[in-house]
Protein backbone atom coordinates (compact mmCIF):
# COMPACT_ATOMS: atom_id res chain seq x y z
CA UNK A 1 0.00 0.00 0.00
CA UNK A 2 2.81 2.35 0.99
CA UNK A 3 4.64 1.58 -2.29
CA UNK A 4 1.64 2.54 -4.37
CA UNK A 5 1.21 5.81 -2.41
CA UNK A 6 4.88 6.71 -3.05
CA UNK A 7 4.43 6.01 -6.77
CA UNK A 8 1.33 8.16 -6.96
CA UNK A 9 3.13 10.95 -5.08
CA UNK A 10 6.02 10.69 -7.49
CA UNK A 11 3.72 10.91 -10.55
CA UNK A 12 1.95 13.87 -8.96
CA UNK A 13 5.25 15.65 -8.39
CA UNK A 14 6.37 15.01 -11.96
CA UNK A 15 3.03 16.23 -13.30
CA UNK A 16 3.29 19.29 -11.11
CA UNK A 17 6.81 20.06 -12.32
CA UNK A 18 5.72 19.51 -15.93
CA UNK A 19 2.79 21.84 -15.40
CA UNK A 20 4.99 24.54 -13.89
CA UNK A 21 7.63 24.17 -16.59
CA UNK A 22 4.93 24.27 -19.27
CA UNK A 23 3.40 27.36 -17.71
CA UNK A 24 6.79 29.06 -17.55
CA UNK A 25 7.53 28.05 -21.15
CA UNK A 26 4.14 29.32 -22.34
CA UNK A 27 4.72 32.54 -20.45
CA UNK A 28 8.20 32.96 -21.87
CA UNK A 29 7.02 32.09 -25.42
CA UNK A 30 4.15 34.53 -25.11
CA UNK A 31 6.50 37.22 -23.84
CA UNK A 32 8.93 36.45 -26.65
CA UNK A 33 6.14 36.54 -29.22
CA UNK A 34 4.93 39.84 -27.85
CA UNK A 35 8.51 41.06 -27.91
CA UNK A 36 8.93 39.89 -31.48
CA UNK A 37 5.70 41.60 -32.59
CA UNK A 38 6.72 44.74 -30.73
CA UNK A 39 10.18 44.59 -32.34
CA UNK A 40 8.70 44.12 -35.80
CA UNK A 41 6.33 47.03 -35.20
CA UNK A 42 9.25 49.17 -34.06
CA UNK A 43 11.20 48.24 -37.21
CA UNK A 44 8.22 49.12 -39.42
CA UNK A 45 7.72 52.38 -37.53
CA UNK A 46 11.40 53.18 -37.95
CA UNK A 47 11.19 52.61 -41.71
CA UNK A 48 8.08 54.80 -41.88
CA UNK A 49 9.85 57.60 -40.01
CA UNK A 50 12.96 57.29 -42.18
CA UNK A 51 10.77 57.33 -45.32
CA UNK A 52 8.88 60.41 -44.18
CA UNK A 53 12.13 62.18 -43.30
CA UNK A 54 13.89 61.45 -46.58
CA UNK A 55 11.42 61.01 -49.42
CA UNK A 56 10.54 64.55 -50.51
CA UNK A 57 10.20 66.24 -53.90
CA UNK A 58 13.17 68.36 -54.95
CA UNK A 59 12.79 72.00 -54.03
CA UNK A 60 13.55 74.78 -56.49
CA UNK A 61 15.67 77.68 -55.38
CA UNK A 62 13.96 80.82 -56.60
Amino acid sequence: MADSDDFAGCIGAVLMIALVVSAVMIAVTTLMSLGAVFGAGTALHNYGLAFANNVKPQKVTP
Binding site: V28, L31, M32, L34, G35, A36, F38, G39, A43, L44
Partner: peptide, 25 residues
Amino acid sequence: KAQAILWGTAGISVVLFGTAVFLAA
Protein backbone atom coordinates in the same frame (compact mmCIF):
# COMPACT_ATOMS: atom_id res chain seq x y z
CA LYS B 1 12.56 39.18 -15.33
CA ALA B 2 9.43 38.63 -17.42
CA GLN B 3 9.72 42.21 -18.71
CA ALA B 4 13.43 41.65 -19.35
CA ILE B 5 12.52 38.64 -21.52
CA LEU B 6 9.98 40.79 -23.36
CA TRP B 7 12.48 43.62 -24.05
CA GLY B 8 15.33 41.25 -24.88
CA THR B 9 13.21 39.44 -27.44
CA ALA B 10 11.98 42.76 -28.78
CA GLY B 11 15.62 43.88 -29.16
CA ILE B 12 16.48 40.75 -31.17
CA SER B 13 13.25 41.07 -33.14
CA VAL B 14 13.96 44.68 -34.07
CA VAL B 15 17.27 43.59 -35.64
CA LEU B 16 15.82 40.48 -37.32
CA PHE B 17 12.46 41.89 -38.40
CA GLY B 18 13.97 45.31 -39.01
CA THR B 19 16.30 43.77 -41.59
CA ALA B 20 13.43 41.84 -43.13
CA VAL B 21 11.17 44.91 -43.09
CA PHE B 22 13.67 47.22 -44.69
CA LEU B 23 14.60 44.57 -47.25
CA ALA B 24 10.94 44.12 -48.18
CA ALA B 25 10.16 47.84 -48.03
